[in-house]
């Protein structure tokens, strides 16, 4: 296995509220290996997107990073200055936002939005940038003419492809995909995922793929990390996770996946609701929904333990 491109160590992120801090990411440690697709799965509100934006340091107020390190190409992202961050953003780490409709500027053309990114990082003359922008659009399967189109003139799938073209513009080492296909229908989703896979094999960037759809993730990713209530529940190679999930939460998630393709809300059939981060349960955060919980689970927080090489879970009962 080659070396990690990103090493997260005990990352904590809090939201400041009137009633004190709310921990949205709690001591997360995770590596992204060069050229791999790492999936991050979890229910909405479990902290996936927060983690992604924290890495780029673009989490808006009231978020504060309250601990940990994120080593990327030898530097800690959490100790970079504003100019250093600006130079690194997009050039080395880029991101596809959840909804391209909201993430693209509605009043300037998609071409301009790609070109200004290229120019901000000194990637050639305006003329060259325009040619490159066309190439990028064509690379993701959009006609080059669309360079002068506005967001509202494109279909949902095309917008998401523009977002992907934009993310690849500067050939970064790491691309974060934040649920890039949630707003799309199943067929377009499949096409786009295949395309991302293709591009990833060709260009060799690493992918941090965030989704609430664990089943889809298992087909697509090399490794998968499962989040539950701001913490990591389980990390394992995709194949192994599907075969032998160790955390009861992962097991429940997988058991609710129907064998035939179902709707996107199929995971909602786990009984109970995720805990409020304002007042998380003591011990293991999953214990109120876990049918195997013992007294220990209610008292002590389980640490993420490596059970077999490359497979870790945060459960007292896992062996």
């Amino acid at each position: 296995m080659s070396k990690p491109v990103l090493s997260m160590r005990n990352i904590c992120v809090d939201y400041v509220t009137d009633r004190g801090l709310v921990r949205a990411i709690d001591s997360v440690s995770l590596d992204v290996i060069e050229g791999e697709i790492l999936g991050i799965a979890g229910e909405s509100g479990s902290g996936k997107t927060t983690l992604a934006k924290a890495l780029l340091r673009i989490l808006p107020p009231p978020a504060v990073i309250t601990g940990g390190e994120a080593y990327f190409e030898g530097r800690d992202l959490f100790s970079l200055s504003e100019p250093e961050l600006r130079a690194l953003r997009w050039k080395r780490i880029s991101m596809v936002f959840q909804s391209a409709m909201n993430a693209l500027n509605p009043v300037i053309t998609v071409g301009e939005q790609i070109i200004d990114t290229l120019l901000a990082h000194d990637a050639g003359t305006p003329g060259a940038a325009r040619t490159r922008a066309r190439d990028l659009l064509e690379m993701v399967g959009i006609h080059g003419e669309c360079i002068d189109a506005y967001t509202h003139q494109l279909s949902g799938g095309m917008r998401q492809r523009v977002g992907i073209a934009l993310a690849l513009a500067l050939e970064p080492a790491l691309v974060i995909l934040d649920e890039p296909t949630t707003a799309l229908d199943v067929i377009v989703e499949k096409e786009i995922l295949e395309q991302i896979g293709d591009l990833q094999r060709r260009l060799g960037f690493a992918v941090l793929f965030i989704t609430h759809d664990l089943a889809r993730m298992l087909q697509f990713a090399d490794r998968v990390a499962v989040f539950y209530a701001a913490r990591l529940a389980e990390v394992a190679p995709a194949e192994e996770l599907r075969r032998a999930p160790r955390h009861p939460y992962t097991q429940m998630l997988l058991s609710t996946v129907p064998s035939i393709r179902g709707g996107k809300d199929r995971q909602e059939s786990i009984p109970g609701a995720p805990p409020s981060l304002l007042d998380p349960p003591a011990g293991c955060r999953f214990h109120p929904r876990c049918d195997r919980a013992i007294d220990l689970c209610r008292e002590r927080t389980p640490e993420l333990r490596e059970l077999t090489p490359g497979h870790s879970a945060a459960c007292h009962l896992a062996e």
């Binding site: 107020p61 504060v64 309250t66």
Partner: peptide
């Protein structure tokens, strides 16, 4: 605005000025 207010107060109490990028404050 209320959340931003609490956030700003939190940072100022720790001697930090609000920044554009997500601040890193390790107590």
């Amino acid at each position: 605005l209320q959340l931003e207010h609490a956030w700003r107060a939190y940072l100022l109490k720790r001697g930090r000025l609000p920044e554009r990028s997500t601040p890193v404050v390790v107590d």
